[in-house]
């Protein structure tokens, strides 16, 4: 019965991850190391992760590995750089007396499978220069673009989505 054994290991691993996340957030919120608060935190995190680890499993996070960790850190740095560029861009458009905007609503395609990956992609698109996610359905995203440069779906996919997707595809690979 290799299947059942794999499932048990998977479940225990998700339980451990959830316990770790909850305990870290407890430490960050209380920010004290007395033994009473620590023991209460361990107890509450244990009870919550006992109840909720099936929901965590349904989110579909991949298991952690060193390669994924490196890519997550690279992704964070690139995202922060893009956010700064986005802000300077929007601030320039706001201050300029004639407001050089050319807005429009376009479609793009994505190749990601999991819902959580699509959510991270949509939030990243929202925070980067000139683009804003309006709606998601299946593998299609509806994007509001403040400075339209192309109307074909292939080109917009290459210009907006590709720079995040090449990292997310590695992070969320099976």
């Amino acid at each position: 019965m290799p299947e059942v054994k794999y499932k048990t290991i998977h479940r225990m691993r998700s339980f451990a991850y959830l316990f770790f996340i909850l305990f870290i957030s407890w430490l960050a919120l209380t920010s004290s190391f007395q033994w009473q608060e620590l023991s209460i935190g361990v107890f509450i995190s244990f009870a919550l992760s006992l109840v909720l680890h099936k929901n965590y499993l349904a989110l579909g996070f991949p298991p952690l590995s060193i390669k994924r960790l490196v890519f997550i850190i690279i992704y964070m740095i690139m995202l922060f750089k893009e956010i700064v560029v986005a802000n300077i861009d929007v601030a320039y458009r706001v201050i300029h007396p004639k407001m050089p905007i050319k807005p429009g609503i376009v479609l793009i395609k994505t190749g990601l499978k999991q819902d959580i990956a699509k959510m991270i992609l949509a939030n990243s698109i929202t925070l980067t220069p000139g683009t804003f996610t309006l709606d998601i359905l299946g593998d299609t995203l509806l994007i509001h673009w403040i400075n339209v440069q192309s109307q074909k779906t292939d080109e917009t996919t290459k210009m907006i989505g590709e720079r995040f997707e090449k990292y997310l595809r590695v992070i969320f690979a099976e």
């Binding site: 905007i101 429009g104 609503i105 509806l142 109307q151």
Partner: peptide
């Protein structure tokens, strides 16, 4: 009125 394209 400045909008160029609407693919909704």
């Amino acid at each position: 009125h400045k909008t160029v394209v609407d693919q909704t």
